[in-house]
């Protein structure tokens, strides 16, 4: 607990209360903004998103993430009329105080030039009111492109988008709701938003070292995105490079099944412990703090497994701090309840 505190600035030292920074989700109508939001934060499965209608104006939502760390998410309807509205009457209202802009491009779009034009005007507005915000580009619906052309088309688009981004340095992702690429993108975005992350990472590393783990992952409870990770020198040799997002995907899909089985809502926590002992590795996922799960991958061995599990339970108290991330310096769209109070 103590060492988590010492390097972070106290909120009281800030001269005046900062307004909650927002996360803007924008893009052309029908590009899949609301779909991805529902999958990541509302436990939808990909095929459920067919039910979603068009977003009218702005859909404001405060997504609880890691306890009292809330994301102030603005899902902006993408029809031209709304877009014009954002850019004219509501310009200041929408674009001021933005922490993160997530702009979604539809790869199937017939009129990419026009998309770029809209993007440019959004970027201009953003540069005017929130020049310090970070920009993420999601090139979405990648599943609709023939696999061997994906990389070329993607690189092509990204180069074009980059050239139109003024002073911003957008971070691009290729995504699709039908595979784990969506989790990769959002995990990185969230990763950027969570305060005192380096602290968490350091402590995870110490824990992992102590219990001889190969890999330690920290998941957020409801979205099952990887918040933080640590791996040993051996763990780093794992040939599966997309394992985090695959892991999220596997567990999230299984949560659908367990929720059907137990009849509890999908957002409720579904399991408290998963242990696997295989001849070439063992792994356990435990309910860690109120809002997180911890997954630990170990070499095989009964003694090692049991002591690791005990140690994780002991370490749990030290990590309770995760649930009250009140002390943090950088505020980028993620604000804790404590700062607000």
């Amino acid at each position: 607990m103590d060492n988590l505190n010492d390097s972070t600035a106290s909120p009281a030292s800030e001269p005046r209360k900062q307004k909650k920074k927002k996360v803007l989700l924008m893009g052309k109508s029908g590009s899949g903004k609301s779909s991805m939001r529902s999958i990541i934060f509302s436990n939808y499965v990909a095929k459920d998103t067919r039910r979603l209608g068009a977003t009218i104006d702005v859909d404001l939502s405060s997504v609880k993430f890691l306890g009292n760390l809330t994301l102030n998410l603005w899902d902006c309807g993408g029809q031209d009329a709304f877009m014009e509205n954002y850019l004219s009457q509501q310009r200041q209202h929408v674009f001021s105080n933005v922490g993160v802009l997530i702009y979604v491009f539809d790869i199937e779009s017939r009129d990419f030039d026009r998309d770029l034009l809209t993007y440019r005007s959004i970027i201009a507005a953003l540069g005017q009111f929130s020049p310090t915000s970070s920009v993420y580009i999601l090139v979405h619906k990648m599943d609709l492109v023939v696999p061997n052309q994906r990389e070329d088309i993607y690189n092509d688009r990204v180069a074009l988008i980059r050239s139109k981004s003024d002073a911003f340095a957008p971070i691009p992702f290729a995504t699709s709701i039908w595979d784990q690429s969506l989790y990769k993108a959002w995990a990185e975005i969230i990763h950027d938003l969570v305060p005192n992350l380096d602290q968490i990472e350091k402590h995870l590393g110490e824990l992992g070292e102590m219990i001889e783990a190969e890999e330690v992952l920290l998941f957020e409870r409801s979205s099952f995105l990887v918040v933080s990770s640590w791996c040993s020198a051996i763990g780093a040799m794992n040939p599966t490079s997309d394992r985090f997002e695959r892991f999220s995907n596997i567990i999230k899909n299984f949560k659908q099944t367990t929720s059907r089985y137990t009849g509890t809502p999908k957002s409720a926590e579904q399991f408290s412990l998963l242990e696997m002992k295989l001849p070439n590795f063992s792994l356990f996922i435990v309910k860690f703090t109120t809002n997180t799960y911890l997954s630990v991958c170990l070499p095989p061995g009964e003694e090692r497994f049991n002591s690791a599990m005990e140690n994780c339970y002991i370490a749990r108290n030290k990590f309770e701090d995760l649930d009250a991330p009140a002390k943090k310096s950088a505020d980028r769209g993620a604000t804790s309840g404590a700062t607000e109070a």
Partner: peptide, 30 residues
């Protein structure tokens, strides 16, 4: 891994040679 402090073959460090797994559902701790 097979060296100290265990000094055993990995096969002997595990209780069961085959894969085993268990998940505890929160609902009713099942």
């Amino acid at each position: 891994l097979e060296g100290p402090p265990y000094n055993k073959k990995l096969e002997d460090q595990v209780a069961c040679k085959d894969a085993e797994s268990c998940i505890v559902l929160t609902d009713g701790r099942r």
